[in-house]
Amino acid sequence: MDDQQGLAWFGSFEEIAKKSLDYLKKKDLLTKTVSWGVKYSLWPAHLMTSCCGAELAAASSPRFDLERLGFLPFGSPRQTNVILVEGTTTIKMARIVKRSWEQMPSPKWVIAMGACAMDGGIFFDSYNTIVVRDYLPVDVYVPGCPPRPEALAQGILMLQEKIKRERQELIKTSENK
């Protein structure tokens, strides 16, 4: 109750606005709310690049249920903020992935799923494949061939942690300027 007594809502409008802004800054509530909202609204583009998509499908099934983490694939890249690269990308597909990435609104993240997306995996010496880091900035790598659905869920939790940290840092640096 003491906290709320400090917030006396009378006086001039400017003073009130300044007071409430200071209060919000001190509590850092806005940052927390926004990053909390973003981290539970990770909507990946429904863009299957390779065979790890079979495990992504299993991860969306009732046993693992990625939707409880706010992770729900959408059809159009313009409605999404995550690209989940499932396994190998071929040269032909990489151009499509890149184009989808350019269509997505910021802020946006990349999860590279599977050994092939990390470093080529079992197809490392193929003439038609390309690793993800050559054309997209990757945030989280999920190892495995293919990763188990639990590993994918762990990767999503890690991305959520990163979003929380990243946005708080972003706001702190903008305050200092």
Binding site: T90, I91, K92, A94, R95, K98, R99, D125, Y127, N128, I130, Y135
Partner: peptide
């Protein structure tokens, strides 16, 4: 199956060679 980069190279022939490290691809 392949993208246009490889048409005319006939990759499954035994004399096809490929240098992965030197490969560069254009993105639109």
């Amino acid at each position: 199956l392949l993208s246009e980069d490889f048409y005319g190279k006939w990759p499954m022939r035994k004399d096809f060679t490929f240098d992965k490290s030197g490969a560069k691809y254009e993105f639109e």
